[in-house]
Design a binder for these strands. Structure first.
Lengths: 335, 335
DNA sequence: TATTCTTATGAAAACGTTTACATTCGGGCA
DNA sequence: TGCCCGAATGTAAACGTTTTCATAAGAATA
């Protein structure tokens, strides 16, 4: 048998006898033969791998995101190369370089990335999708969360509940998501008194804001934190100060991270289908890989309000919300 | 300039003039040249990539695990290829195959993997480290959590608190971690009355166990759940039944997932340094990659008791535990 | 039986690097 | 001036696949 025949047999080419195919398959199995990926990639110009460039891997958010990406990648037989923890633009550039030439497409989420950066460090030939980005360049495909709409909806929800004095805890100043959420709050809060407190998405900053609010002579009726972690930090500060939620003050967050359901009282929040974000971005990437000339699309992912007890609606029971069951729940088998 | 000189210049070989090196670097930058990874791998027989084969990516546990792996990999300039969501042995085999020939080493965590499986599907030439596994084969390097010791310590802790009637909620029957934890409990619970309830590591199963306990005529004084998610489900069931924790009944878990701190009351648990598990396993893998002939080591990672309010010690304040600060906290910049 | 057509297999080029070995070039030494 | 030596660069083989093209062997047709 020549290498050519073996290659054809193993790749399921039509023009090879069933008999030889069987013979080759048998020998391959006996020899535990595995094709050399690099050699294959070299000639086919495909790696069957996509890269995900993320700012970090810590926390619920990225866990869900990667899960969504992995799910979609696996469905298409693609391998997933992850890279993270780049704290500044230089590290992001290094990571980007290292991925180039090893992947067929790239998923990018990074606060350090903008259009000039991409033109500088990203080959135009490599399909890429940008997530949660302020990059508006039509050249790049993007997938964003509807931060603006979600924040607007939550603000309206608070207004509907009758709160007329609302404090907003902001995210980091240079963060795109944070800016959009703030804008949404501002635009919808018109009828009410609106105050702003500075935060940076960390639980710690939410805690500080909570203490500040508890110490106010005239406290707001409701607090809307730009993400759940801050809301939770705030919740603990308020509780420690003896305030009851939602009786004394209402509280809402953004993201619907799993913890939100478990705190006391359960936290009203804006649900972002994070796994869908990952899945959707990978699908967009695959589409781009298959038809490189198609115009790059800019999609936005809708959010949804999840009312729980922390905003004190009478219709919402304080009973424990049961976890959703999941497909593929092999995690039930791991601690 | 010949390709050889370019190669040498770019790889920092000694025998190339500073002048030509600069010239080549300049041209490379202008042309946005990125070396073709596959071609390089083909000749060097190195991919600079390690693979992680996991049963799933959902939840705190894997999030932390991957973070630890990534941290260590990045420190060594290695890329990380992840593969997950294989629900059965066949899928695990496929995933294993797909990784082979694309990575320099493999990190494996899977309930479906045993020694015969590995001999069948894993090339002996490929360095690998098994995590949380019952595989005792000396041929393979392993890294386990000290499930037995941790469960023993927690049981003793409950005894020290004066509880003499303790219920244990078990994990899945075929799970290695679960079995070890049960064994630890059994061996340490001798002086007390010990009862067992069946669980499967899911929050749902913990909830069921909690209802069952609440309905008992003679309730145990303390409950020890084999993982935190079950403890939390149990907590909600007990609370719904009007029982106060720890006054009416004490509760403890295992893992110290982030949520454990946030529930009410905060959950006493066994801390497993999950990120360390990932980091340690990668370091073991690297060691094996560098000296393939060294005898494969079997390491065990210690656990530590984290006493919180749910086991009602007088010395433990119910004040909110502040989150640990982290290096590399760029996550503060993402929701 | 001779010719053509089809089908299965083989031979060899190509992919983009690295690296062992060959070559060139200039300078120091005799 | 001639020789040798070392440093810098060039040449070419090798890595393990896929794929194009050629070839061989039958089968169908005349």
């Amino acid at each position: 048998m020549s290498v050519a025949t073996v290659s054809r047999a193993l790749n399921g080419s039509a023009s090879v006898t069933a008999q030889t195919r069987r013979r080759i398959a048998g020998v391959a199995a006996r020899l535990r033969y595995v094709p050399h990926g690099a050699a294959r990639s070299l000639v086919t110009r495909r790696t069957q791998t996509v890269g995900a460039l993320l700012p970090d891997l810590f926390g619920e958010f990225f866990s869900e995101l990667i899960r969504g990406i992995d799910l979609a990648a696996r469905a298409r037989g693609l391998q997933l190369l992850v890279s993270s923890s780049h704290g500044d633009a230089a590290e992001a550039a290094t990571a980007l370089r290292a991925m180039q030439g090893r992947v067929d497409g790239l998923l990018i989420m990074s606060p350090h990335v903008d259009a000039p950066f991409l033109r500088e460090h990203l080959s135009a030939a490599l399909p890429a999708v940008l997530m949660n980005t302020s990059v508006g360049d039509k050249r790049y495909a993007t997938l964003n969360i509807d931060n603006y709409g979600g924040a607007q909806a939550m603000t309206r929800h608070l207004l509907d509940c009758g709160y007329r004095d609302i404090a907003f805890i902001t995210g980091p100043v240079d963060n795109f998501d944070a800016a959009e959420r703030l804008k949404g709050f501002r635009d919808a809060a018109k009828p009410a008194r609106a105050r702003l407190l500075r935060g940076d998405f960390s639980e710690e900053s939410g805690y500080r804001a909570g203490r500040e609010i508890a110490a106010m002579r005239q406290r707001p009726q409701a607090i809307f934190a730009a993400n759940d972690m801050m809301a939770i930090g705030c919740l603990f500060a308020l509780t420690e100060s003896g305030l009851r939620i939602p009786k004394d003050i209402a509280l809402a967050g953004f993201d619907d991270i799993p913890i939100a359901r478990y705190v006391n009282p359960p936290l009203t929040t804006v649900r972002v289908r994070i796994a869908d974000l990952g899945q959707g971005s990978l699908e967009q990437l695959v589409a781009q890989m298959e038809t490189p000339d198609a115009p790059s699309s800019g999609r936005t992912l809708a959010c949804e309000i999840v009312p729980r007890a922390s905003t004190g609606q009478p219709s919402i029971s304080r009973k424990h919300e049961r976890p959703k069951s999941r497909k593929h729940r092999s995690s039930g088998e791991m601690p």
